[in-house]
Simulated assay, not measured.
Amino acid sequence: MSLQVISIPPTTGQAPTGVIVALHGWGANAEDLADLAPFLNLPDYQFLFPNAPFPHPYSSVGRAWYDFQRNEGIQESRQLLTDWLSSLESETGVPLSRTILSGFSQGGAMTLDVGLNLPLAGLVCLSGYLHPITQGTKPDTLPPTLIIHGTRDSVVPITAAQNARDILTSLGVAVQYQEFNMAHEVIPAVLNLMRSFVLQVMSVESPKA
C-alpha cells in the first residue's frame, strides 16, 4: 500500500519553515481538509493531506483509515503512516521536529496513535478520540498536543476528548484542551486556535538567534 497525498507548498515561494500534515476523517478524503489550508494563514508552511488507504464502505469517494465494525486495517494504517512520516524529511527538507501532525475524527485518533511515538513538533486532534493504550505504556517521545472538541458532537461524544486529555496528561504529555459550542465540525475559532498552537510550538523548536 502507498499513500496518495495532496501537497500544498508555501505561498511565499520559499522553502518551507515547517510542515503540517492533516489526516481526514472516516468517509471523507484528502480534499475535505485541503480546502481549509488557506484559512490557517500559515504562508511559510507546506501542507500535506494524505488519503486514507482503504475505501469507505458507503461512499464511492470516501476513504477510511480502518474498519470501525471489524476494527480491521488499523495496523496497516499505523505502519503506513509511520513509515511515510519518517520519510518526509528526505522529500521536504523539513525534520520531524518542525512537523505538526493533525487530524479530524478518525484522523484525529490516528494522529494520537502514530504521533505519540514520533519526535514531532506537536499533535492536533480535532473532534477525535484515543485508541486504547496498554496500561503502563509511556512512549519515549511526547509531543505537545492540542485537543479540540465540540460540546454538541453527536458523532464522537465529548467524553472521548476528556478521556484522551486525562490519559495523555497522566502519561506526561503537555496537553492543551479546548471545548467549543459546536457539533462534529471545524469552525473558524478552531482554525484560529490551531494556528496559535502551531506558531507556539514552532517558536519553541526554533533555534535561538
Rank of each mutant, 00 (worst) to 15 (best):
A209W: 12
T137N: 02
V156Y: 11
S127T: 03
V198I: 11
A160Y: 09
V5F: 09
C125K: 01
S77G: 13
G122V: 04
G18Q: 06
N163R: 12
P95G: 09
S2N: 15
A37M: 10
S59W: 07
Q106P: 07
I74F: 03
P144F: 07
G27P: 02
L112G: 04
T134F: 11
T137A: 12
R63I: 06
A37S: 12
D140P: 01
A160Q: 08
N192Q: 15
L3N: 12
V173E: 03
H184W: 09
K138F: 04
S90G: 07
L48Y: 03
F39R: 15
W65C: 05
V5L: 10
Q200D: 12
I167S: 05
V5R: 00
P10M: 08
N41C: 04
P16A: 12
R165V: 02
G13W: 10
A15P: 09
I74V: 15
Q176P: 03
S203P: 05
T159G: 07
G25N: 02
V190G: 00
L168V: 03
D166H: 08
I148N: 03
L171Y: 01
A15Y: 07
S87K: 10
P143I: 03
N41K: 15
P157L: 10
Q14I: 03
L116F: 10
C125I: 00
L85D: 01
E185T: 15
T169L: 03
A183F: 02
E185R: 13
T169Y: 02
D83C: 04
A189W: 05
R63N: 06
L36H: 04
G128R: 04
V201I: 12
R78Q: 11
E31M: 13
C125T: 00
S97W: 01
V175Y: 04
V5C: 14
L23R: 08
P157Q: 06
G150T: 11
N181F: 08
H149F: 06
L42T: 04
S196H: 10
E91T: 04
Y45M: 09
R165Q: 10
L199H: 13
V156H: 08
S102A: 15
T145H: 06
G25V: 05
S196Q: 15
A109P: 13
T92W: 05
Q4P: 05
V61I: 15
A52D: 00
V201D: 00
A209C: 09
D35L: 14
F49Y: 11
V114R: 10
A209P: 15
L123Q: 13
P143L: 07
S7V: 08
F180H: 03
D166Y: 05
N163I: 04
T134D: 08
V190L: 06
G136W: 12
G108S: 05
N29Q: 12
R195N: 15
S7W: 07
N41H: 09
W26E: 14
S206Q: 14
W65V: 01
S105A: 11
P57R: 07
L191N: 03
T82I: 11
G172S: 06
P55H: 01
T11R: 15
G150P: 12
L191G: 01
P55S: 04
C125H: 07
G62N: 01
Q178P: 02
Q135M: 13
L116E: 06
Q69S: 07
E185L: 10
Q162D: 11
T82L: 13
S127I: 06
V155D: 12
Y177S: 06
G27I: 14
M182V: 02
W84M: 06
N117M: 01
A30M: 00
T159D: 14
S97N: 13
H184G: 03
